[in-house]
Amino acid sequence: MMLLLGLAAWFVAGISLGVVYFVGICWSARQFADGGRVTTTIALSLLRLAVLGGLLALASLQGAGPLLAMALGVVLGRFGVMRRLREATP
């Protein structure tokens, strides 16, 4: 039972991380397209990538189950963001 709760927590963390990561990519693309500050956009992109890599590495230290649960959550978070963006774009 505790194993399933732990995997569910990693899965939910992955979904949250995926949503934040891919919304951040959308924001970065808008900043580049609108002529925003390039240095800030690049710095936040590197930070976003480091956080994703760090949290996936942390999950991998817990074993294959947490890593796979978090990775699946990230993929589902991406799916949600892309679906919402597709609906919002005319």
Rank of each mutant, 00 (worst) to 15 (best):
A43F: 13
F79R: 09
L56E: 11
C26K: 11
V12I: 15
G6Q: 10
G24K: 07
A64K: 11
G54F: 10
L49W: 12
I42K: 04
G73N: 03
V51M: 03
G65V: 00
A50L: 15
R83V: 12
G36Q: 12
G53A: 15
I25V: 15
Y21C: 07
A59K: 04
G80H: 06
V51N: 02
W10L: 01
V12N: 00
V23Y: 07
G73Y: 05
L67H: 03
M82Y: 10
I15D: 01
F32T: 03
R83K: 15
A50S: 14
G65Y: 02
S60K: 08
L17F: 11
A57I: 02
G18H: 12
G35Q: 04
G24W: 08
P66H: 01
Y21S: 11
T89I: 03
C26G: 05
L47K: 02
R86M: 12
L44R: 12
G54V: 08
A13Q: 04
V74H: 06
L52W: 13
I15N: 00
F22L: 15
G53F: 14
P66V: 02
A8Y: 00
R37Q: 12
W10C: 09
Q31T: 10
G18A: 12
L47S: 05
T40I: 14
I15C: 07
W27S: 02
L61K: 03
T89C: 08
F79M: 13
G35L: 04
V74R: 07
G63T: 07
L47C: 07
L55P: 07
L68C: 02
R48E: 02
R48M: 12
L67Q: 06
E87F: 11
F79L: 15
G18P: 08
G24V: 08
F22W: 10
L17G: 03
A33D: 12
V51G: 02
L72G: 10
L56F: 10
R48W: 04
R78T: 13
L76W: 08
V19L: 14
